[in-house]
Computed example of a mutant assay.
Amino acid sequence: MQAVNISGFRPITTSVPRSAPYPSSARWRLPMKSSSDYGSCDFSCRQPLRISSSFSAAAAYTSADGETTLIQSSVGISDLLIVGPGVLGRIIADLWKKDYPGSQVAGQTLTTDHHDDLRQLGIHPISSGSNVEKFPNVIFCAPPSRSADYIADIRSAAACWSGEGSFLFTSSSAIYDCGENRPCDEDSPAIPLGRSRRTDVLLNAEGAVLEAGGCVLRLAGLYKFDRGAHTYWLSKGSDENRPDHLVNLIHYEDAASLSVAILKKNLRSRIFMGCDNHPLSRQEIMDYVNKSRKFDKTFDKFTGTDGPLGKKLDNSKTREEIGWEPKYKSFPFFLGVNTD
Rank of each mutant, 00 (worst) to 15 (best):
S238V: 05
A148Q: 10
Q47L: 13
I123R: 01
G214T: 09
I175L: 15
D239Y: 10
V4S: 03
L81Y: 07
S238A: 10
R270E: 12
E325T: 14
P85G: 00
D79N: 10
E206Q: 12
A152I: 04
C160Y: 04
H124Q: 05
L246V: 08
G107T: 09
Q2C: 00
T318L: 12
S36T: 15
S15Q: 14
E211G: 01
I126G: 00
T13W: 07
G8E: 06
V337H: 06
N241V: 08
Q120E: 13
H251C: 01
F167R: 04
L217F: 11
G165C: 10
S74F: 06
N131K: 13
Q120T: 09
R218Y: 05
L210V: 09
P31Q: 08
L246I: 06
R282M: 04
V83Q: 01
S316A: 13
M1S: 06
R155E: 13
R27F: 07
Y22L: 13
I139Y: 05
S78R: 14
H278R: 14
L234R: 06
T112W: 05
L88C: 00
F272Y: 15
K301Q: 14
D254I: 09
P189L: 02
V4C: 07
F334M: 05
R218M: 04
C160R: 02
I6S: 03
S292H: 10
